[in-house]
Simulated scan of single mutants.
Amino acid sequence: MTLPKSLLLVALVAGLLLLIPLVAMQYTTEVNWTFSDFVFAAVVLFGAGSTFVLIARMGNNGTYRLAAGVGVVAGLLLVWANAAVGLVGSEDHPANLLYGAVLLVALGGAIAARFRPLGTSNAMFAAALTYVAVTIIALFVWKPTGAAAEPSAHLLNVVVFNAVFAGLWAVSGWLFRRANGSVLGRQLA
């Protein structure tokens, strides 16, 4: 599929996904999105889909594309969860801004590696470690005061939730590592 067709498909899927909250708003008051919520969701969904399309085109096997998909989903979920409810405490907790470093490490490392499987694998593992480091800093080092202090943030929930997110980055790194082995195996054959 050509790049313009792929991007058109991404836009179509993003639009269809946005119909879910739009329809839900017609039947329940539990879903109450504003225009800016829809714009944010459209940008995030289209951005993630486009990123996947561009990165997946650089690989030549299914494992590489799966690794790219897991990495993009990890980034999408990080942005979405952080904007919606926050990864530590509420979305207003200032430490949540630190999670942007995870995206910088992942994308910056992948770009520096020119999206080659081994280098991108290292970038994803570094993103997982950055995620763990940011969570530790947010929970144990940086204790906000005043309105940002969150006594209701349950430590176990935060740790488990963040471990799952860090695990997604590690799985992406592992898959990129496997994709590298597939590339080497074909080159040697």
Rank of each mutant, 00 (worst) to 15 (best):
N122E: 02
G62I: 02
L18I: 04
P144F: 02
F52A: 04
A179S: 14
F176S: 07
W80L: 09
H93Y: 03
I136L: 15
M58Y: 05
V73Q: 00
G59D: 08
L22Y: 10
P21D: 06
V164K: 08
G71E: 00
A95E: 00
A24H: 08
M58A: 05
S121I: 07
V31M: 13
V171I: 12
F115K: 01
G108V: 10
G146V: 11
M1F: 03
G167F: 09
A42S: 15
L104S: 06
P117H: 10
T135M: 12
G89W: 00
T34V: 12
L97K: 13
V10I: 10
L184N: 04
F165E: 09
L184F: 04
F161R: 15
A68C: 01
L17P: 01
M25S: 15
A83C: 06
L76I: 06
L97W: 11
A11F: 08
S172P: 03
V43R: 12
I55Q: 11
V31D: 06
L184I: 14
A83S: 13
A110H: 01
G89F: 00
K5P: 00
V44E: 14
L18W: 12
L45Y: 14
V10N: 02
R177L: 06
V73Y: 02
F165Y: 07
L98I: 08
G100W: 14
L118M: 11
P144V: 02
N82Q: 12
T130C: 07
A148S: 09
W169P: 00
L9N: 11
V134F: 05
V183W: 08
V43S: 08
L16I: 06
Y131A: 02
G47M: 04
Y99G: 05
I20D: 13
A110S: 13
N122G: 15
L184R: 11
L9V: 08
V44C: 09
G62Q: 01
G167W: 11
A41S: 15
A112E: 04
N157S: 14
F176V: 04
G185Y: 07
M1E: 03
A42F: 15
N96A: 14
G109R: 07
V141K: 01
H154D: 15
A56N: 13
D92M: 10
E91Y: 06
A149P: 02
I136D: 02
A148C: 03
N96M: 13
V73P: 05
L18S: 09
T51M: 11
H154P: 04
T28F: 04
R116I: 00
Y131D: 13
M1D: 07
G119V: 06
A170S: 11
V159W: 10
L103E: 10
Y99I: 04
L78D: 10
V13F: 05
V79G: 01
V158H: 02
L107R: 01
W174F: 14
G100N: 13
L87V: 05
V102L: 14
N60P: 00
G185H: 11
L155H: 05
L118V: 07
N60R: 11
F40C: 03
V44S: 04
P117D: 03
A147V: 14
S121T: 04
F46R: 02
L129V: 14
A101M: 14
R186F: 05
T63N: 10
P151W: 00
L76W: 14
T29M: 03
L12N: 02
S121D: 01
W33I: 06
W33P: 15
A163E: 08
N162R: 05
L87M: 10
G119P: 01
V31S: 04
A67F: 15
T135A: 10
N61P: 07
